[in-house]
Structures are given as C-alpha cells and as structure tokens.
Design a protein around this nucleic acid. Structure first.
Length: 697
RNA sequence: GCCACCGUAGCUCAGUGGUAGAGCGCAUCCUUGGUAAGGAUGAGGUCACGGGUUCAAAUCCCGUCGGCGGCUCCA
C-alpha cells in the first residue's frame, strides 16, 4: 500500500504496487500522455518502474509546446535516441559492435567498434537518420527485462561481444546483482541492448534529433586500447528546440576566436612558421599591449618588481629544477653547441647516445624555457635576502615553449609558444596566506574590469592516499587552508578537488568555457615548497639564521594567448573602447569633407586615440556598414554641416541609429575619459546625457 | 601521439576524370552622396606539397605538411 508524495507535498495512496505511469494517469490523462519518466526518491527511473513502498515521486514530463524542457526529460530522450541510433547503424552495418552510449548535457553519443569493417563516414548520416526516423515513427515501446548476473553473463558470452561483457563485468563489480536489457519493442523479436536505463516509454517520445559528428575515442579512455568510433548527436522534445539549438550553434561559430581572429585580423598562424606558433598581427598586438599595460599598472600598485629573462637556459638549470629530463617529452629538444655536435657526429654518436649524454649531464645543451620559474629563482638567489626584504615579487611577461601534442594544438587556446603574465613570490611561511589573497585580488580586478563573471574556481588539494607530494604534511595543511581562505575572499562559488594539486603544492585555478563549451584553465596561483628546496634558496631570519622561503607561482591571465582567445569570444570581437584595436573611425560624407575628416582625425590622434578616417569613394551607407562589420566602437560621420560648427555626428557600436551631433572637443574629452578609466566613465552618457539608447551588440 | 573528416583567389565557398568558377574584398573609372552594401571595368590560381594510376588528375591511389572534431595529454 504505497503512499506517494508528490513535489507539491500532496499524497496519494495506492492499494497495490504502482508505477509512475499509474500515478500520472491517476492525476490526469494529459499528464500520463506527456510523462516520460520519473524521479523516485530522487533517482531517475522509467515510467514503468514498479513502486511497492512509500516514496517521493516527481514525474518527468516532455511537453511539445514548452520552451525549455526538464533536463531529466532531455536526458531520457537523448539516452533513448542513442539506442535508436545504434539500432539504425546496426541495420545498415550489421557487423559493428556496440560499446557504450550515454546521454550528455549537450546531446548523446555512442561508441562503436568498426574493427574489420569499413569506417563510418558522415555521408552515411542521411541513411542512418532515415532509419532512425522510421524506428521513431513505429513508436515502439522501450521494454526492460532483467536477468540474474549468471544468466546475463551466459547470454553475453553466447553473443560474444567483449565490450558488452566488459560493461556487465563492470556493473557487477560496482555492486549490481542483476543485469538489465532494454528492447526497442518486443523481447525476442526486436533490437535490444544491455543497458542500465532509464528510457522514455517509447521511441515516439523522441521529438526531434540530428546526428552531428564522428570522432574517435579509446576503449576505457586508454590510448593503447581499441580505437572506437564515436558518433555524436542531439535530441529534443520538439523540432523547434532542435532548430533553436542548431541556430545557437551557428551563432557560436561566428563568435569563435579563430573565425573572428581572421575577420578582425587579430592574429595569424602560419604553416611556414610552425604549428602552434602564434603571430600577433597589429590589431591583436594592440589588445595584448593594452592588457599588459593594465596588469602592469596593477602590479606596480602591489609592489611587484619587473624583470626580464632570456628565452633559453642551460640544461643544468632544468636538471636542478627537475624539468629535465623528467618532462622531456613535452619540451622542444635541447640546443647543442654546434662544434660539440659535429665532434660527436664524427665519433659516430647516435641520437640515443646523445640523449643519454645530455640526461647524465656529460654534455651540456640549452633548453627553450618551458617555465619562467628557474630564471626568476636565479634572480632571487643572485643576492642575499633578509626577512625584512620579503616578500620578493618578481614579475615578467615571460614566453615559454612546450612541445604540445600535435592533435591538441589549435587556435590561440592551445599553442606551443606562449607568454605567461608570470610572477614568482618569495615569502616566509607566515606570509603565504596574505600573498595568496593579494594574488586573488589581482584576478578579481581583471575579471571585473573585463566583465567576465562566468568562471569557475577550483582549489586543487593533495590526495591523502598518494605519496607523490613533496614537503612536510604540516606545511601542506597550512597551505591548503590558506588556499581555501583565499578562495573564500573571491566571493564566488569554488570547489575543492583532491588530487588536483601540483606535486609541489596546492593551487587555485580559474577556469572559463569557450564558445563551444570547452573548459580552459586560465589563471593559476600555486604554492611551491619544492623549488626553494631544490635550488637551496634562503633568507636570513630575525634569529640571524638561514631559513627556507616559500614560493608562490601566479599568472592571473594564465597565458596572453589563451586568455585573449577566450576574451575574443567573451566580447564576440566587440572589444570595449579601451581595448579595441581601432577605437574611432571618421567617415567623410563625401570627398568635399575629406579635409575636415583629417582635422578630426588629427585631433583624435593628438589625444592618443587609435583612429582612422574612411575617405574612400563610397557612400556613407557603405562606410557605416564596413566599419560596423569590423566592430569599431565609435563612428564619427562628418559632412559640411558638422564642419561648419566643429561638430561630429556620432554612432556607437550596438546602437542602430545616428545619435546626433556633438562638438568635437566634447566627444574627444568624453572618450579619453572612458579610455583612461577602462570603461568606468561612459562617453555615451557624457555626450548624450538625456538620451536613452538600448545597446544591442 | 591516435581515429575520422577537410585543404580550390586575400576571405567564404561551388566544381568529383576532359578549357579554373561565384560572392565579398582589392585596383581603376563613373558617381559627390547625411546614417547598415550606388554603378561599370579589371587584376588576382603551380587547385597545400611530393609521388603514383591514366591518353588526360583540382577530381582516383599512396605519402608528407597543415586545419578541424573527438580521444589521450597539459609540470
């Protein structure tokens, strides 16, 4: 006699065992129609799951008319759609073996082994989608049946798919005492798949779907294991949602920093220069320079010392730091003295010999620096330090080089040479907590100034069970606590993750998603006990004895390349005036106003504003459109009327109309204020105080 | 690094065995105009690179380089 409690607190009693479907029917016919599953005591289940005890039940519904569907409904639909897709693929390609097909936040995929048969091509999508549509049209029920682990394993052994056997073994290992199958239709006559579920009641509930892409994956995520084909798709309650989703995806592509980087000429990656080596073209260089100036000013406020160091260092430096040969595979190969190299060659030295000689330190070479810290450490060590001097804060926009895997490189977010807005803080044990807070202040200022509010904060702690961490556990506890406290000062949610610490200390990372939803680590603040030890760094304490300083590595942007890549997408290329490569464009109404356009241009440039004048032989409409395409924040239309009164007619990016005329001096004064305050002061409000405009970039 | 797909004008792309194409951009000329594309003409290509098949290759095959989407990795 189960009593069911619904989300609104009302209860319903049933004489016998019941199911979510019965509960829905009991409430209304309409609800039963659109129910696709239920949460029973918080667990997502089939609509047909038997309920024999008292429970809290929340029905999951999918209504065709609704704008946004319940994420639970989408998960059920997507997981079910993965089954439908797998059946369709097996109809067309019977020899393939299914591996694993889950729902994702953004869709679903199915990993399939095409071993021994022709690889799948996206050209086959149309045929697969046709099969899928017909399975959905048939509106076949998803029928669940259960076997004991013994019978289930026997069935799987007979069928002979090692992947499904493996899935079952994993389920049993995880504590499952039975195995379940879902048949798309009637047992013994329709297609079925070993699956934990849950699913929608029938294929007809899948309102709209589309196959999206083919990728590869590894079995168990292991690069040495079988290579699988992963087919991605999306599914929704209704076609309208699918359409909206696809439109959003199209729009995302236009925000992609690789697309905008080309269109706005922000950067260039040249085949002839090398994969993952970024060329900053003049427009992108402006953005980077402005950001560097910005952070440079903040560093000065926080009493950092600027340093410069070379791009290479002796191998021995990196033997001491531990980077070489330990992280050899992610470094460019060492550079060797040419005379020494030719001598070795004449002696018949092989590449393997050479590598060993370098590892052992028998011959010396130079490394393109993979990190800035060793150089900064040698600066610290170049003079004695008293506790009175600490903290020492050494900052540098330092360019580092790493041999990233070729398949991983792309755009600005993953490159082989990048510039960190790096600094190393050398301080006493007691100063760590305060310094961490200072570092996070900087991060806060940066994100606030740039209007980036959508970031995640992760505090990486050590994994208590691992012995890979160096340093005294007591110090670790203290440092981890300092990281937590510092993270708290941010005033945004943060998560702790055990095992995410570097081997040398805990850290705080800042993670931002790109326009395709991929997460990227930007800024990082890391406590380090290891390097001061390895380099035997000291300071003289109040007791007159030598003490070991603690080091903090920090880079609030992370790297200029990755940060600006994400920033381009954040602004969709429409940079605020202080960052915009071209801040103002003067548009002459006709050739007759060219001289006045020059006058305005000279006045803008005299105040340090980045401006150009469009004096080409086009009509004003075309000039406005061209400038708008380049996302230039301010357009000044100048014609005879303006020249007469020393006015400019203003257009602001995002406002689809002429704002009217204002005196040239007023405009320039207001704009320089906006630029120097990095957007704090608004030129628009100063020039046109009485107007209300809606900005729509 | 692995798997799939892709590489044609500065950009976006069409062309799938038989004379290299379009739009935008660029140049020149006409037009001299008041707020999101005025008109005409023209230049621009070793079809990524190297090899092979073929009477004939942008097109088919192999390799290399590069891009893209995943996977794996990211001190």
């Amino acid at each position: 006699m189960p009593t069911i409690t619904l989300p609104d607190g009302t209860t319903r009693s049933f004489k016998n065992d019941t199911t979510p479907f019965e509960i829905a029917s009991d409430i209304s016919e309409g609800l039963a129609q659109c129910a696709v599953g239920a949460r029973i005591d918080g667990v997502l289940c089939d609509l047909s799951t038997p309920i024999s005890n008292d429970a809290e039940v929340k029905l999951v519904t999918a209504r065709k008319g609704e704008k946004e569907s319940d994420p639970d409904a989408l998960e059920l639909i997507r997981h079910s759609c993965a089954h439908v897709m797998a059946e369709a693929i097996q109809r067309i390609r019977p020899a393939v073996k299914l591996v694993y097909g889950p729902a994702l936040d953004s869709g679903f995929y199915y990993d399939i082994s095409f071993e021994g048969s022709e690889p799948l091509s996206s050209e086959e999508f149309e045929a697969i989608e046709k099969e899928m549509a017909s399975i959905i049209d048939e509106d076949r029920p998803f029928t669940r049946y259960e076997l004991s682990t013994g019978d289930g394993m026997k069935k799987l052994q007979d069928e002979g798919s090692k992947y499904k056997i493996d899935n079952a073994e994993r389920a049993i290992e995880a504590g499952s005492d039975s195995l379940t199958w879902y048949v798309t239709g009637e047992p013994n006559s329709n297609w079925e798949d070993l699956c934990r579920g849950p699913h929608v009641p029938s294929t007809g509930k899948i309102g709209a779907f589309k196959l999206q892409s083919i990728a590869s994956s590894y079995w168990h995520g292991d690069a040495d294991s079988d290579s699988l084909t992963r087919v991605y798709g999306v599914a929704f309650v209704h076609k309208k949602q699918l359409k909206k989703h696809l439109k959003l995806q199209e729009e995302s592509k236009l925000r992609d920093h690789r697309v905008l980087g080309k269109k706005l000429r922000l950067f260039h990656i040249d085949e002839q220069v090398g994969q993952g080596l970024l060329l900053w073209t003049p427009n992108g260089a402006v953005v980077r320079q402005q950001l560097q100036n910005f952070i440079g000013e903040e560093l000065q406020k926080q009493n950092y010392s600027q340093v410069f160091t070379p791009h290479i260092g002796k191998l021995d430096l990196y033997r001491t730091s531990g980077h070489y040969p330990y992280y050899q595979e992610s470094q460019y190969p060492p550079l060797i003295d040419p005379e020494q190299l030719s001598k070795l060659a004449s002696e018949g030295c092989t590449c393997g010999d050479l590598s060993n000689l370098m590892k052992q330190g028998d011959i010396e070479g130079y490394l393109l620096k993979p990190m800035n810290c060793p150089h900064h450490i040698r600066i610290y060590a170049s003079s004695p330090h008293s506790y009175r001097d600490l903290p020492v804060r050494l900052a540098e926009f330092g360019t580092v080089y790493r041999w990233e895997q070729s398949g991983e490189i792309g755009g600005m977010t993953r490159v082989r040479g990048f510039t960190q807005d790096d600094a190393h803080l050398f301080c006493t044990e007691e100063q760590v907590a305060g310094e961490l807070i200072g570092c996070l202040d900087l991060v806060k200022i940066i994100f606030k100034t740039l209007g980036m509010h959508d970031y995640k904060v992760r505090v990486g702690l050590r994994d208590a069970d691992s012995d890979k961490y160096v340093g005294d556990p007591e110090k670790w506890d203290k440092a981890e606590d300092a990281c937590r406290k510092a993270a708290e000062t941010l005033g945004v949610p943060w998560v702790e993750e055990a095992g995410e610490a570097a081997f040398y200390g805990p850290k705080i990372d800042f993670i931002v998603n790109d326009v395709l939803g991929r997460p990227w680590q930007l800024g990082t603040v890391q406590v380090d006990y290891n390097l001061p030890e390895r380099f035997d760094l000291t300071y003289i304490g109040p007791d007159g004895k030598e003490h070991r300083p603690v080091m903090i590595h920090r880079a609030p942007f992370g790297s200029m390349e990755r940060f600006i890549g994400v920033l381009i997408e954040h602004f969709a290329g429409a940079f605020p005036t202080w960052l915009a490569p071209e801040q103002v464009r003067v548009l002459a109404i006709s050739e007759k106003s060219n001289d006045y356009a020059d006058t305005v241009l000279d006045a803008l440039r005299a105040r340090g504003i980045r401006a150009t004048a469009d004096q080409c032989d086009e009509r004003i409409q075309a000039k406005i459109r061209n400038a708008a395409d380049l996302k230039i924040p301010w357009l000044l239309v100048v014609g005879p009327r303006d020249a007469e009164k020393n006015n400019v007619s203003v257009r602001k990016r995002g406002i689809l109309q002429d704002l009217g005329a204002v005196s040239m001096d007023t405009f320039i004064g207001a704009l320089t204020g906006e630029i120097s305050s990095r957007g704090e002061s608004k030129a628009l409000e100063i020039c046109f105080p009485d107007s209300e405009f809606s900005i729509d970039t």
